[in-house]
């Protein structure tokens, strides 16, 4: 009983764990590059959450089966219950590419900061900014 409840919902706990790891990277680390890595982990947690939300189970002859990929198969027909939800896949497909591009911008900013202050450590940068 408890095990069944866990298999139904363990994905959410994994997502929460990843979100917290990413948030820790952003809050607890002083190096800007490590903050960026934390941000990427945070983003990935959101992606995984969406993709997991697309799963659909259906029951056939008493057994629980997974939905198929959202490509309409002529043999299966167009019953929406047999396929997973295509909408989260679309949203995340674009979001992944956008995240790569924004990571590029973040890296460019980090390069500029390192060029100006010879360091990526928050405290050192603040100290050198005051000089």
């Amino acid at each position: 009983m408890i095990l069944e409840a866990f298999t139904d919902r363990y994905v959410y706990f994994m997502t929460v764990a990843l979100l917290i790891i990413g948030l820790y990277g952003m809050l607890g680390k002083r190096n800007l590059l490590k903050k960026l890595i934390g941000m990427i982990v945070f983003q990935t947690a959101v992606f995984l959450f969406f993709i997991e939300g697309a799963t659909k189970f259906f029951i056939e002859n008493g057994t629980k089966l997974r939905g198929s990929v959202p490509v309409i198969d002529p043999q299966l027909g167009t019953d929406p219950a047999l396929y997973v939800n295509p909408l989260p896949h679309v949203l995340i497909l674009t979001a992944i590419v956008v995240s790569v591009a924004t990571t590029g911008v973040a890296l460019a900013l980090l390069l500029t900061i390192h060029r100006g202050y010879q360091s990526l450590d928050e405290k050192v940068i603040l100290e050198r900014m005051r000089q």
Partner: peptide, 27 residues
């Protein structure tokens, strides 16, 4: 987050709101 998690539907539930509105029409 864990408090919010209690409101989410079970994994793979076909009756979940995310699987209801327009996504069956697309398929």
């Amino acid at each position: 987050l864990i408090y919010a998690e209690t409101d989410l539907p079970d994994r793979g539930d076909p009756e979940a709101p995310a699987n209801q509105h327009v996504s069956p029409l697309y398929l």
